[in-house]
Simulated scan of single mutants.
Amino acid sequence: MGGRRVVVVGYDGIEMIDVACVTSGFEHANRLGAEPVYEVVLATPVGRPVRSDTGLELRGQGRLDTITGQIDTLVVSGGLGHEDAAANTRLLGQVKRLAATSRRVASVCTGATVLAAAGLLDGRRATTHWYHAARLAERFPRVHVDAAPIYIRDGTVATSGGVTAALDLTLAFVEEDHGPELARWVAMGMVTYLQRPGNQAQMSMFTSIPRPDQVLVRRVVDHVVSHLDADLGAANLGALVGVSERHLSRLFAQHLGRTPARMVRDARLEAATRLLADTREPLTAIARRCGFSSAEALRQAFVAQFGIPPSRFRVAHAAHA
């Protein structure tokens, strides 16, 4: 048919938005003149409708084992059913078979679990929904999991973060295929960001530091978020709860999946992004309130985490608001 064939893999327990961001994004590109057009097919394991994790059903246009020939883009959706899908050996076999004939392979959100179970992420850097990242890294140690970015491209394989990050990944594909102008028109047509860069953090930079169940770690986290301008070195934090610096690091690795220093930096950066977005305070004042030694220290940490300087983030946020 001369188009770019896109196969979206669905299964029971998929997230509707994961599917819709991809299918609607490519369809908008078609309406705006993509040439060759995208021919999008939702394929399911046995060809029957699949039940989403909201209870609604989606009817596929194809059955996985009947799809043959070259595929432009293979996309595995995420959703609450991703664990069951990753345990389905027949489904994994079809994903591996289709991936071998695809120009590029991608996952949306927890669809990364399916790609990892199929061995398609071994040795690659990948992301997933931030909430499930630690579990993915634990189950698949050969995958280099990074929970921060919206999406990651590693060779011909791409993985995206939580839910609407699928739209950012789809826009990146449209730009790669048809250029930035069409991608901008698609973004405006869908009333979304003019494509956030893949290295921007998930959760729109505004998700709270998690409060763990472990009592000592929770006490440290609560202390950090309420004393950002204090000396929050690991030795001081350990002394706060009566444990050694080494033991505190072990507890943080087990219950937060990060070091105390990383958690402190994340908390300070989150507070800084809120102040940048919601106030007109100068960078020097924000840096001081959030525990950075200087505005330059804040700028360096911000660029390292989000890929843009704080001044640019403030301008962009104001423009979007």
Score class of each variant (00 low, 15 high):
residue 36 P to H: 09
residue 56 L to I: 13
residue 29 A to S: 13
residue 38 Y to I: 08
residue 88 N to M: 07
residue 260 P to T: 09
residue 52 S to T: 15
residue 277 A to T: 09
residue 246 R to H: 12
residue 87 A to C: 10
residue 212 P to C: 12
residue 15 E to N: 12
residue 144 H to D: 14
residue 174 V to W: 04
residue 272 A to P: 02
residue 173 F to V: 13
residue 129 H to T: 07
residue 209 I to R: 06
residue 135 R to G: 12
residue 164 T to Q: 05
residue 313 F to E: 03
residue 267 A to D: 01
residue 318 A to E: 15
residue 219 R to I: 05
residue 238 G to C: 07
residue 134 A to W: 10
residue 67 I to R: 05
residue 212 P to L: 11
residue 126 A to N: 03
residue 142 R to K: 15
residue 10 G to H: 02
residue 107 S to P: 09
residue 90 R to E: 13
residue 38 Y to C: 09
residue 6 V to E: 06
residue 147 A to W: 03
residue 117 A to Y: 02
residue 267 A to M: 00
residue 215 V to L: 14
residue 66 T to N: 09
residue 3 G to M: 08
residue 55 G to C: 10
residue 285 A to R: 15
residue 196 R to I: 10
residue 218 R to V: 03
residue 320 H to Q: 15
residue 161 G to H: 09
residue 105 V to G: 01
residue 306 F to A: 07
residue 129 H to W: 06
residue 51 R to F: 03
residue 179 G to K: 09
residue 248 L to P: 01
residue 36 P to A: 11
residue 181 E to S: 11
residue 199 N to K: 12
residue 287 A to G: 06
residue 269 L to H: 01
residue 173 F to S: 04
residue 227 H to C: 10
residue 179 G to I: 07
residue 72 D to K: 04
residue 143 V to Y: 00
residue 312 R to N: 05
residue 118 A to D: 09
residue 17 I to K: 00
residue 318 A to N: 12
residue 274 R to M: 10
residue 82 H to C: 11
residue 207 T to A: 15
residue 162 G to Q: 04
residue 157 V to P: 02
residue 234 A to I: 14
residue 219 R to F: 04
residue 79 G to V: 00
residue 279 T to V: 10
residue 179 G to Y: 06
residue 240 L to Y: 12
residue 282 P to H: 07
residue 259 T to E: 08
residue 260 P to E: 05
residue 65 D to G: 07
residue 7 V to H: 04
residue 70 Q to W: 06
residue 254 Q to N: 11
residue 265 R to S: 05
residue 89 T to Y: 00
residue 192 T to G: 08
residue 36 P to M: 10
residue 43 A to N: 04
residue 22 V to G: 02
residue 149 P to G: 08
residue 110 T to H: 04
residue 135 R to S: 13
